[in-house]
Design a binder for these strands. Structure first.
Lengths: 290, 290
DNA sequence: GAGGCTTACTTATACGTATTAGTTAGCCGG
DNA sequence: CCGGCTAACTAATACGTATAAGTAAGCCTC
């Protein structure tokens, strides 16, 4: 910046004013042009660390994603976030795991802590309405099964703790209530068939997976029993991962407009008006399994 | 730091020396102790942006992962990287997409550009021997098929461009040569069965997937033809993703000690001796499909 | 007892920016 | 022709750190 100042015959302060288009500064267009040209010729690029030191935060947003299921929607969410942040001159960095140190080290403008959001959804966190949307998406999922006449529905959750579980379990209950279905049982499903057998014996005719992997586990167990979706049991996933389409029978799943949620989240954390980026409603991708 | 200096009755410089354990600095233990105590009491935490400004780089390593297949090994690679970097006081941030801006914005100590490594493997890039290892891993994969008596082998690659493709294709050819097999054909596989039909008609008895998703596509197409692995066609994947174990028949795959490669990469980019973290050889996870 | 070496520090500076608080020149109104 | 106002700038400072360069005192040696 000092070099640019020297080259264009003004002070470093003036250069800063021009390049940042600082408000309330009376600088004639001729000077502005001179400064810009010099900056371009010298290949000036702002030193973001220095700027961060001055401003107290860098133009970075950190997404905390440790322990989150890597699915289609996380990927799209990230893409949307990234794109929208880029529009505002910011950029996204994703942290897995040792977040505290990483955040300490970058002084980001904002941190989006998705696992924390999942853990306590009532907290006021910028997520572009992601959490709120989940309720509707779950309703879409369960509604698809109900629409096909299923009344006794179970929910498949993976073995081991899952950050989504508590949140989704509540939504599933609400959805069932709204659809006037009996409250669904929640069953732990890895790919062993015994649990599934018990379910079938209890008269369950459809299973909704917490996410596609859980649903695929059900399909696998079903196959091990010599049975097949959708006739012996309807199975629907959540989040439409590519692997779902590769199974046979192909997995029916719910696709979420996660990209739009990402965009909204970006605008929200930067304090911009969220505007018109309304996410499309969740969409059931009907394939073979339900 | 100034507060700590005041509280312990020394200058800011001395505080810096003590807390950073700067070499060639003669400071008696009594003073050191006083400074440390004051820092602890005041809750001093280094301002990493200021440090980055001074040092010219922050204690961050950026992993560029845009467009990479999200598989088991990427996840493990990241975990290993993260863990080892944390040991050295650094932290990992992952960038998808708009990397240039992000890198500009954090001034990382190092950037690990995996897509670039894939694109031009001869370049000297710190990757912990990842690329070099690939050759051996491919040999393991093809070797498993050869060991089961297969001689006419094809390689399945996904439709669309894939960053791994060029690299792996070469390795597959070398592996075949070493195993005295005829050079494998490379076939584009999405999950439509017609291409696979042609392959079978040509006498191919085994297919190796570029990664598990490619292999799953083959299994799907095979199922669509009313055939089944491993009897009608042996199928082996690469990278042992969780979804492979959920297929029926279960996908045989190759598991790589990506975590160790991550650790090595970390030490390498920080300029530390790589030491004893030798990755375990790739391991064939034998399931049903090959 | 002067010169040199070591210990235990301190002072000062630089990193690159954004912004506040001036400063100078020109113009206008009375 | 003087006071005040505006335009068009500039000078100076602060952000928090790491480190080179200095300094004062004490000790050792010849």
């Amino acid at each position: 910046m000092r070099d640019v100042a020297r080259a264009s015959g003004v002070s470093q302060a003036t250069v800063s004013f021009v390049l940042n288009e600082t408000a309330n500064q009376t600088i004639p267009d001729a000077t502005r042009e001179r400064v810009r040209r010099a900056a371009a010729e010298l290949g000036y690029v702002p030193h973001s660390i220095a700027r961060a030191l001055r401003e107290g935060a860098s133009r970075i947003v950190v997404l905390e994603a440790g322990g989150l299921p890597r699915g289609n929607s996380l990927e799209s969410f990230i893409a949307g976030l990234d794109a929208e942040l880029a529009l505002a001159g910011h950029s996204l960095l994703v942290s897995y795991g040792s977040s505290a140190a990483a955040i300490e080290a970058v002084s980001p403008r904002a941190v989006i802590d998705l696992p924390a959001v999942y853990a306590s959804p009532d907290r006021e966190v910028a997520d572009g309405g992601w959490i709120d949307g989940m309720a509707a998406h779950t309703l879409t999922q369960i509604g698809h099964l109900a629409g096909r006449g299923h009344r006794k529905i179970a929910v498949a959750v993976p073995a081991g703790p899952d950050p989504l579980f508590a949140l989704m379990a509540g939504h599933v209950r609400s959805a069932a209530q709204e659809l006037r279905l009996p409250p669904p049982e929640t069953v732990l499903v890895d790919d062993r068939p015994d649990q599934l057998r018990a379910l079938l014996d209890a008269g369950i005719t459809a299973v909704a997976g917490l996410h596609d992997d859980a649903a695929l586990g059900v399909l696998a167990a079903l196959s091990d029993l010599g049975l097949r979706a959708p006739d012996d049991l309807a199975v629907i996933g959540f989040d439409d991962t590519p692997q779902g389409a590769l199974w046979r029978p192909r997995l029916t799943s719910v696709r979420i407009d996660a990209r739009a949620y990402g965009r909204r989240t970006a605008r929200q954390v930067l304090g911009l008006p969220v505007g018109d980026a309304t996410p499309a409603p969740a969409q059931v991708i009907v394939r073979d399994s339900a």
